[in-house]
Each structure stands twice: as C-alpha cells, then as structure tokens.
Design a protein around this nucleic acid. Structure first.
Ligand SMILES: [Mn+2]
Ligand SMILES: [Mn+2]
Ligand SMILES: [Zn+2]
Ligand SMILES: [Zn+2]
Lengths: 143, 143
DNA sequence: ATATAATTGAAAAATATTTTCAATTACAGG
DNA sequence: CCTGTAATTGAAAATATTTTTCAATTATAT
C-alpha cells in the first residue's frame, strides 16, 4: 500500500500537479482502506493525520484522482456519493453490501454481448460498466 | 405507451397506493420520453399538464416507482441523479451520451463470469449491474 | 354522501457540492 | 539554500439537491 501511494504520487507529479501534504494524506486514506468512502468520510479519516485539511480540498483531490483514473466513483442502488481505489487497467468493482468492502475484478470478455447489443440497436458502444453486489466472507460469518 | 401507463397505474393500485392526478402525470412523463430525466426535469415536464404539481411529490413518486421496480436510477460517470423507465424483468440500460436516450436490453447469461468471481473472492454475489454507453443512431448522424 | 387515512405542496431544514478569494506553499531556477 | 511565481489551500458564501414537517386536500371504501 505504501507502494500504491508512491505510484499515485508519481502520477500526480507527472500530470503536472504539485504534491502537497493534503493531497498525500487523501491518497493515503483511499489507498489504505479497501472500501468505498464518501468525500466526507475521506475528510474525517484524513484529518486524523492532517487536522487542517479542508473538505473542499478533498472534493478537489477526488476530482483529480478520478480524472487520472486512480479512483473511481462507486455506484450504489440509492446513489453514488462514494469513491474507491481503481487499479490499473480496465477493471470492475465487486461490493459488499454489509461492510462496503470493494474488490476489483477483471470482467471476462463482454464483446459478444456488446456486439450483439450494438447490432440490434444501431448504437456505437464506447464503454461499459459492470458492478457486482453481494456479501464478503467476513460479513458472511457475522450472520 | 398508454399501455405502459395503464399497467403502471394498475401496479400502483395493487400495491395499495392511491392513484392521484399527480402520480399519473409523473408516470406519463417517464413512460413517454425514452430518456433519463432528473427529478427536476420530470417536474418541469409534468407541470405542463399539471401546473400545481410540487417537486416534493416528484421525489416521492420516483421513490415509489423505483420501489416497485418500474423506474430505475441511471448511473452516469459523474453522478446518478436521473431516472428512466425500467421494463419488466431483469434488464440493463444502454445509454446515449449524446442525447440521454435510454434503451433496455437483456444481458446475456453472466453466470460463468459471476461464478468465477464468487469462487475467487469468496463473496456471495446477489446482484449485478451492467450499463453500456455509446452513441445512438440519431446522434451518430449529427456528426 | 361520508368518514378516514393517504397524499399533497409550501416552507423549512438538512445535506451535498461548487465557487470565490486572500493567504499559503511547492518547487523550478538561480 | 534563497527567491519568484503560479498552483494550491481553507473558510465562507453560494448553489444544488434531497428530506422533513405540517396543515389542507383528496382518493376511495363503505
Ligand atoms: Mn469489462
Ligand atoms: Mn444481467
Ligand atoms: Zn462485508
Ligand atoms: Zn443520442
């Protein structure tokens, strides 16, 4: 996870952003927890190590990180206010409805399906999204 | 589309809800347009036929309709404030990034993929979501 | 027709996000 | 190491979205 933060810092720098204390602490929070967090949740956790951090900066940092593809918005049934780390390359999210845990997985090849839909609708399909919902091993044991 | 509204009205009634003028006009708007609309957009369109409708009622009606599975929240890259009609049965949304058009399609059988992910993560997977994004035929011609 | 419980809209409250701006800070270049 | 400069910051205000409250209205069973 220190590795991930280091990589993210490097990508920030390469993209021309300054590496500030505030950005670093936001990065660290998101890289460390393996679950989805709202901006406010990120803010609360990050302030433990950086009490003068502002919520505005969290919003701005999350914007930058999603722009760079390092984090991704997690879409839940009732809204999509939270974010989780997005591994490199094309991946999808598997989400525990119990604890908010987020695991990434590689979706198999969806091209047959996508081609079929493109064919029958006349759409040009540019992107797809797959999210799976369920219960993680830890939450299964809690029952 | 009159058919769809009639079906929806019947389902509302069966679920124990009163069929009010306000609910009917919200239903009509969503059934008529084939695109995703935010609560405010629904409100504006519905008020053409029902000028005393309140935005609060639109929110409440959308809640009821998603509870009954008649409409579904549409999740876009930057948020998910809009809703679209959800056909019966398990379906997915294909969305035009140009005009907001929403088309439903049946996702093929994703069980092999889902089983594989369940296997490798230990999750019990209860639900899945697939959305495709692209350009509809009409918007392709506009280029 | 009437009784009644559900539903309504306006207003207020709560929540979420963005903008503004003066002060601070990262860091490139010397 | 200093210094200049443009990027970044947090607080406050503005805006946007959603929910709650409550008295008045209304759909519908009888
Ligand atoms: Mn995929
Ligand atoms: Mn499916
Ligand atoms: Zn869990
Ligand atoms: Zn289109």
């Amino acid at each position: 996870m220190d590795v991930e933060v280091a990589e993210w810092v490097e990508k920030l720098r390469l993209a021309g952003y300054k590496v500030t204390r505030q950005r670093r602490v936001v990065l660290e929070v998101i890289a460390a927890v393996g679950m989805h967090l709202t901006p406010t949740e990120v803010y609360e956790r990050a302030r433990v190590n950086c009490p003068d951090l502002g919520l505005t900066t969290v919003y701005r940092t999350l914007d930058i990180l999603s722009g760079l593809g390092l984090v991704r918005r997690v879409h839940l049934k009732d809204g999509c206010h939270s974010f989780a780390s997005a591994g490199q390359g094309h991946c999808h999210h598997l989400i525990c409805e119990g604890c908010g845990d987020v695991v990434e997985f590689e979706g198999g090849d969806l091209s047959p399906l996508i081609n079929r839909v493109a064919q029958s609708t006349g759409f040009v399909i540019r992107e797809h999204w797959l999210e799976l919902f369920g219960t993680c091993p830890a939450c299964q044991n809690k029952l």
